[in-house]
Design a protein around this nucleic acid. Structure first.
Length: 651
RNA sequence: CGGGGCGUGGCGCAGUCCGGUAGCGCACCUGCUUUGGGAGCAGGGGGUCGCCGGUUCAAAUCCGGCCGCCCCGACCA
């Protein structure tokens, strides 16, 4: 009986024939009735609860579902995680029924994760409101013109998803919302009297990353809280920036996620000052340089460190025969010198903005001390390139240099952009290639033997490098970028003519800041931080529910008691997930509860009732205590309050 | 984009070298027994073996192409 199928071709007109649905048989109906109350579900309640308050502490009454039966929960637990999963938090979120992947870097949030995400969003909302943010919502699809106005339509590569509508108008999927905010600011902000201002929203972003990985850590579609500050001058911007900095620290504490603020590159955002809020973990994709002595913390891309230049008078250059030595190691071995006595050349092809949005490629040669690595981000920034890729040997040769024995000496000016590290500029008598196979040059001196195009800090910080601030050794660590804050300046407001009129009647560009937090990524990091061998151990501020109520009832009377307790907890506004599944062994339910990782667990069965009530325990803690049924609501509220207060901040 | 790996019921896998009835564990459905840390017995349902093409009497298996996913290197919340 396939009465639910309706084939369009059989009727000639789709929808012309009424679709008949198979009705639930008596058995199905009976089973449903035993699971869900027929009229007003007990778990759908209006909460006049002190647990629900506005940021100002006023109680909020609202109708909301505070309970969920496991028998009917959309999202089952998995005993085994899919084989391709590598990160523990990802595996647990999948196994516990929080998320499901539908394509590379594209996930659905099942009800559990969505509840957690909403809690995270509420925390973000409260903290943004606290620093005078106004929530709004901006679209995911943007017209190309906005991004053309700031140039990013041309600057950003295939990471931006573009498409055309039926009228062949160019559109894009939002990667972030600076353009739209500037667009609105242009029309909404007229006068200095309207500044400062700050707006934010929680919105989906799409970035077609070269590679998504790490489960929820790095995805292509994600929800971000992004806020934007508007100010009349750099001082106002700095102030809003600082307020965000503090708000982000509060958010980390409220979500029980340790965050380290590090100085960072501004990347595609532009601007000058930026920090990233990092969750330090070995699974992180970013490299960090941390100084335990003075607290300096920076993304390795921008980490500053000091190196003493080589001493000595300039000696005349000397060509030496060095057969078969194309690496630093081979050269130093043959010549009996140390790597810091040499210079290393690293070649990139940089792409630069040309006419009409076209791209032009140019060879970039970075020169750093022989034992160090070049820092591609700095090379890119110093050279002014939009993008870098490693150069091919032919491209190096085309500029008149010999790969393996390359040097800037004798190269035609303009053949390549020489980005030279400060240390190399200051250190005389280095060994570099001779641009001739099997020959090197001794005593190469920058300024005498060749001219740098740009000078800067081009070497990548390394473990033990002297901290640029205090001189102690830097420590390298890995981290996940949960949030960031940027002082953008006027780039976007100028591109979109977002100006205000000041007291003197002069029209000035608005100073903008932009501040993001990836909500799903935040959840993934919380899961990574709070877990054990049995599953998640979510902090109460983030957990989808407060309590796992586990019924181990065998007799109908006990089931009725468990059902009643569930309904009472719901009615009291306690968020509870109720494992009401029958014919399952205790171990299965305990394991599922452990996996879901709610902070509290309440067990009801014949055994607990004989002992005097229900058994309450904390996730991951062996001890438990029996609570009389009449005291449950009060005791649970107390426990929840205590847990929440541990994450609370004094205002 | 370069390198590597993998696509077989919802999940985990075997089968592929050496072509011939699609299999195992978990999950699911029915019944009975069990029941405080992933139960037992019996019965049952579910898979165009990623897709397209080729070779062959015969393809999950061999050949070619494509697609998808995962991992390692260049982008970012």
């Amino acid at each position: 009986m396939k009465s639910y199928r309706c084939r369009a071709e059989s009727s000639g007109r789709a929808g012309a024939r009424p679709i008949s649905y198979r009705t639930a048989g008596p058995r199905t109906a009976g089973r449903l009735a035993s699971r869900v109350s027929p009229r007003r579900p007990a778990d759908l309640v209006t909460i006049p609860s002190p647990l629900r308050t506005t940021p100002n502490g006023r109680p909020v009454n609202r109708t909301e579902r505070t309970g969920q039966r496991v028998s009917n929960l959309f999202g089952m637990t998995l005993r085994q995680a899919p084989g391709e999963v590598e990160i523990e938090s990802h595996s647990l979120l999948l196994r516990a029924g929080y998320v499901r992947q539908i394509a590379a870097g594209i996930f659905s949030y099942l009800p559990l994760a969505w509840r957690s995400l909403r809690k995270i969003e509420q925390i973000l909302r409260e903290e943004m409101d606290r620093i005078d943010g106004q929530e709004l919502s901006m679209p995911v699809v943007h017209p190309a013109e906005l991004w053309q106005a700031t140039g990013r339509w041309y600057d950003i590569d295939a990471t931006m998803a573009r498409f055309v509508d039926r009228r062949e108008r160019d559109l894009l999927l939002a990667m972030t919302h600076e353009e739209v905010v500037a667009f609105h600011a242009a029309s909404e902000i007229q006068s200095y009297r309207q500044l400062p201002a700050m707006v934010y929203h929680m919105q989906t972003k799409f970035r077609d990353e070269l590679r998504s990985r790490g489960g929820l850590i790095r995805v292509r579609e994600f929800i971000m809280k992004d806020s934007y500050s508007l100010d009349r001058d750099p001082e106002g911007l700095a102030k809003q920036y600082d307020r965000h900095y503090e708000a982000y620290e509060r958010i980390g504490r409220r979500c029980a996620l340790p965050l380290t603020a590090v100085r960072s590159d501004t990347g595609m955002m532009g601007g000058k000052i930026a920090h990233e809020f990092m969750y330090v973990t070995p699974i992180g994709e970013d490299s960090l340089a941390l100084c335990d002595a003075c607290g300096y913390a920076a993304n390795r891309e921008v980490a500053e460190f000091t190196l003493e230049p080589r001493e000595g008078e300039m000696s005349p250059p000397e060509r030496v025969h060095t057969p078969g030595t194309s690496t630093i190691e081979e050269v130093t071995g043959l010549l009996g010198i140390s790597a810091p006595e040499t210079g290393k050349m690293v070649f990139y092809m940089g792409s630069f903005a040309g006419e009409e949005g076209a791209r032009e490629e140019k060879l970039i040669a970075a020169i750093v001390r022989g034992d160090l690595e070049a820092n591609p981000i700095q090379v890119q920034n110093l050279a002014g390139a939009l993008e870098l890729r490693p150069a091919h040997e032919e491209e190096i040769a085309a500029a008149g240099m010999v790969p393996g024995f390359a040097s800037p000496v004798g190269v035609e000016p303009g053949a390549a952009i020489f980005v030279v590290d400060r240390w190399v500029v200051e250190s005389p008598n280095l060994v570099l290639g001779a641009n001739e196979t099997d020959y090197h040059l001794r005593n190469v001196c920058c300024g005498r033997d060749y001219e740098p195009t740009v000078v800067g800090s081009v070497a990548l910080a390394f473990e033990g490098a002297p901290c640029g601030r205090c001189g102690e050794g830097l420590r390298m660590a890995r981290g996940v970028e949960v949030g960031n804050i940027f002082q953008l300046g006027t780039r976007y407001s100028e591109g979109l003519e977002a100006t205000y009129t000041d007291e003197d009647g002069a029209e000035r560009p608005i100073w903008m800041g932009s501040y993001g937090i990836g909500t799903g990524r935040l959840l993934a990091c919380v899961a990574e931080e709070h877990r054990d061998d049995y599953g998640l151990k979510l902090p109460i501020s983030v957990a989808p529910y407060h309590v796992s109520l586990v019924s181990l009832a065998r007799e109908e009377e006990t089931w009725a008691t468990a059902d009643r307790v569930f309904e009472e907890l719901c009615a009291a506004g306690i968020e509870v997930i109720y494992d009401d599944r029958r014919d399952l062994r205790a171990g299965v339910k305990f394991n599922d509860a452990d996996l879901r990782g709610l902070p509290l667990r309440l067990v009801i069965g014949e055994r607990s009732l004989e002992a005097g009530g229900a058994e309450l325990s904390h996730r991951g803690v062996r001890e438990s205590r029996i609570i009389p049924l009449d005291d449950l609501v009060a005791e649970l509220r107390q426990e929840i309050d205590t847990l929440l207060s541990r994450l609370a901040l004094d205002d």
